[in-house]
């Protein structure tokens, strides 16, 4: 089983988001970077599948040199080799083209991603890669079991789930509870240092969108506290001030 896992390098979920250069650049000051939480689920499931079925895991990131520690962490968790496409990940189309190119050459049985990146929250890259490669793509996947050449999947939909079956290869966007996040152990961290990190140039510079400027949401005013013994006042506010009831 040859698995490709695509990971993002994103600000930790507790990061304060702010921008510099007249709101045209993300402010990295003091920000901790992590493997995208959904990508971490994909990687964890890949490690489990490799443990039970054998094979290898390649992790891939489209990003500049600063993302290498994040790729190394994925190697420490259990990937065998890493590929970094040396380019700023401008938009989903740009990223999808790079991933599809690597994936085509590698003849992977399974391409695992996260359900969405937590910076741009697009949830697009897996479907774009699927379409570029003529493969099915399924997201968000909560259960992924492999039996021979067939996969049994549960995908979350609004208010429930879909059970599905399909043949390998395909692309899946993962989310919990597909697997438990894995924390790298000492042996993993040591061996990650000598695992291959292949840096490649982008194959295409095509993009569909570009960000002109960032904006912050308006500040919230102070909370109006209502006495628990005066809930009629709260109902009145909800009805006549907020007009939501």
């Amino acid at each position: 089983m040859k698995i490709l896992v695509c990971i993002t390098h994103v600000p930790d979920t507790t990061s304060k988001i702010s921008f510099t250069d007249n709101n045209t650049k993300f402010d990295k000051t003091g920000v901790q970077y992590i493997i995208g939480p959904y990508d971490d689920y994909a990687l964890a499931r890949a490690v489990e599948l490799k443990e039970s079925l054998g094979g290898s895991i390649t992790v891939l990131n489209v990003g500049e040199a600063e993302t290498e520690p994040t790729l190394r962490k994925a190697l420490a968790i259990g990937a065998d080799d890493a590929v970094r496409i040396n380019a700023f990940p401008t938009d989903a189309l740009f990223v999808a083209k790079q991933i599809a190119h690597v994936a085509k050459d590698g003849s992977y049985d399974l391409i695992l991603m996260g359900r969405e990146s937590i910076d741009f929250n697009g949830g697009q890259v897996h479907s774009m890669v699927g379409e570029l490669m003529g493969l099915p793509s399924v997201s968000p996947v909560m259960v992924l079991d492999i039996d021979g050449n067939t996969a049994k999947i549960q995908r979350e939909i609004e208010g429930g789930k879909e059970h599905m079956e399909l043949e390998l290869p395909f692309v899946a966007g993962c989310q919990e509870p597909i697997a438990e996040w894995k924390i790298p152990n000492m042996r993993g961290i040591m061996s990650a240092r000598s695992k291959p990190m292949n840096v490649m140039d982008p194959v295409s510079d095509e993009t569909g969108t570009s960000v002109e400027v960032y904006e912050m949401p308006p500040e919230k005013g102070a909370v109006k506290l209502i006495d628990p013994d005066n809930l009629d006042e709260l109902v009145d506010l909800l009805k006549n001030e907020a007009k939501v009831l």
Binding site: I17, F120, N121, Y214, E215, M216, P217
Partner: peptide, 12 residues
């Protein structure tokens, strides 16, 4: 973007 923590004015 950033799960509702910011917005991006995006050109297509």
């Amino acid at each position: 973007i950033y799960t509702g923590k910011a917005f991006a004015i995006t050109a297509l």
